[in-house]
Design a protein around this nucleic acid. Structure first.
Lengths: 144, 144
DNA sequence: CTGGATGCAAACTCTTTGCATGCAT
DNA sequence: ATGCATGCAAAGAGTTTGCATCCAG
């Protein structure tokens, strides 16, 4: 079965979350949310801005940042610091980890359950999430 | 027994590595190396610059960056992207992981062996290192 | 001596802030 | 109508680059 991009589900989810908080449903928020969910990718704010501008010309970069901050708050996306200096935004919120290529900086998803267990709290530090990043060389760079 | 800061060992290690590569032993390199090894901390380039300037006034920030790049090459320190936007440099090169406080951004060492096993290569991706970052709230912030 | 390391200034990337305008509710 | 969201410009952090000078080998 062909996999089509379903915009109505992300739209409804976002609308629900925004209304529950008394926040507004704006075209920018809808479009950015759709972009994040359409591709299972790790996007920079810059890339999202470029993509958003295609659907909604005139959208500003600060708005993209503000929207991303909000989405992180809402639990819709995850911030990811890997490889490059830029922050990446990941729409997959289910537990999964990342493989970063040391040479080209590409970030791939790792579906291996690397850490089966959540570690216990240590020294009064309350653990909320575990991020595993694997560094190495991707298949494409290995060939070159 | 009191633990004093031993500069001669780091100095000798660095000198050996530099000579082996035909590189120069400069005061800046010695001082920055000592600073990194003296404290088991996670320091930003800015913090290292400030500390270096105390011992060696006039040292420039670009020199600190160049030196850190070299040290990463030599395997003396590890780059660490955690919490804040700034890159941290960690002098502990033995396998260990990090706990980042979501609120204050502090980075603590985690000595728990979270991942006993190195994961196998996946999809042609050659794994070289595994970084585990635990996110949560530190003891100090929890009280506040 | 000589080439590699440093210092300085400037540029560059990524991100945040302040304020006036505009639109969702 | 109300006030939150947006757009714009500008500032701010962190890092890199280019070039002249200098010093470790």
């Amino acid at each position: 079965m062909a996999r089509r991009i379903d915009t109505s589900t992300p739209d409804r989810e976002l609308t629900g979350l925004l209304h529950a908080r008394g926040l507004r449903v704006t075209p920018q928020r809808l479009v950015i949310n759709r972009l994040l969910r359409a591709r299972d990718a790790h996007l920079t704010a810059e890339q999202l801005h470029a993509a958003t501008t295609r659907d909604l010309p005139g959208t500003s970069l600060p708005t993209v940042y503000a929207t991303l901050d909000l989405f992180v708050e809402l639990g819709l996306v995850r911030r990811l610091r890997a490889g490059s200096t830029a922050v990446l935004y990941d729409s997959r919120t289910t537990a999964h980890h990342h493989a970063v290529c040391r040479l080209c900086g590409a970030v791939h998803d790792l579906d291996l359950p690397l850490t089966g267990e959540t570690p216990p709290d240590v020294d009064g530090f309350t653990v909320e999430r575990v991020d595993v990043t694997v560094e190495g060389v991707c298949a494409a760079c290995r060939r070159a």
